[in-house]
């Protein structure tokens, strides 16, 4: 498989009106869903989600071992799947990588701006859903550059579908800890009681309730990094 460079894209500082929707099934997501103004600082952002190749290189260079390795890289990354997004990583695993490359995970607000941009697009590529521009309801993960035509306003690819992406931070409502996931995934479970999968709109996040690391890792959950810029 031909590898490629996961180049960084510059996002210029801006203020935008954040408004997010979610499907909580039952229960609630205790965050301020807007509309509210948020300030996005100058950023660099990975064009693609972090790939198996990138994460493998990180492991090789750092010898990173999670404290709790249950399900860590359960898919066993190898050269055949180097260009697929890395999955089976917890938020801690993602943060460890991001730190090593000098970045961090995007906040929920940043992720939305990277996907929707100043024109508040519903989908990375525009305002109309087009399943041919993303891995929606597919059978498996695909290469992070498989849907380049579905890039966002700033050139980021694979933001909707293929794999969910971690955002930064653990939210704590006093009784629960949860993280917010973005973008949806290739997997689209059959029942309305399941997590609503498939490709998701730019203004959609899903509340992942935190438990042990084995539960925090999934076959559909990866990440991309951002980098503070001047």
């Amino acid at each position: 498989m031909k590898s490629f460079v996961n180049k960084k894209i510059f996002i210029e500082s801006n203020e935008y009106t954040y408004r997010v929707e979610h499907l909580t099934l039952e229960g609630t997501c205790s965050t301020d869903h807007g509309p509210r103004n948020v300030k996005i600082k100058n950023l660099l952002v990975d064009k693609y989600p972090v790939t198996n190749q990138q994460y493998s290189f990180f492991l090789k260079k750092t010898g990173y071992q999670p404290k709790d390795s249950q399900r860590f890289l359960e898919h066993k990354p190898n050269k055949k799947i180097f260009n697929l997004p890395v999955v089976f990583v917890s938020q801690n695993d993602a943060i460890a990588y991001a730190k090593w490359v000098g970045g961090r995970l995007p906040t929920d607000e940043e992720w939305q701006y990277i996907a929707a941009g100043p024109k508040y697009l519903d989908w990375p590529w525009g305002n109309k859903f087009n399943p041919s521009l993303c891995n929606h309801d597919g059978n498996k993960l695909e290469s992070v550059n498989a849907y380049r035509k579905g890039e966002s306003w700033c050139g980021c690819v694979d933001m909707s579908g293929n794999c969910w992406e971690w955002t930064a931070g653990i939210h704590d409502d006093g009784n629960h800890q949860f993280a917010l996931l973005r973008g949806g995934s290739y997997f689209y479970a059959h029942d309305h009681w399941h997590v609503g999968g498939g490709a998701r709109k730019n203004n959609y996040h899903w509340k992942l309730q935190i438990l042990n690391e084995g539960m925090n890792r999934a076959a559909t959950l990866g990440f991309r990094c951002v980098y503070d810029a001047k």
Binding site: L25, Q70, F187, W193, V195, Q209, M215, R217, A218
Partner: peptide, 22 residues
């Protein structure tokens, strides 16, 4: 109770989710 509202994030079924507990 730990399967819902977690089931469906990936293809793991309700029994596999027990294996992911510590």
């Amino acid at each position: 109770w730990h399967q819902y509202p977690r089931l469906g994030l990936d293809e793991s079924n309700q029994w596999q989710l027990y294996k992911y507990l510590p």
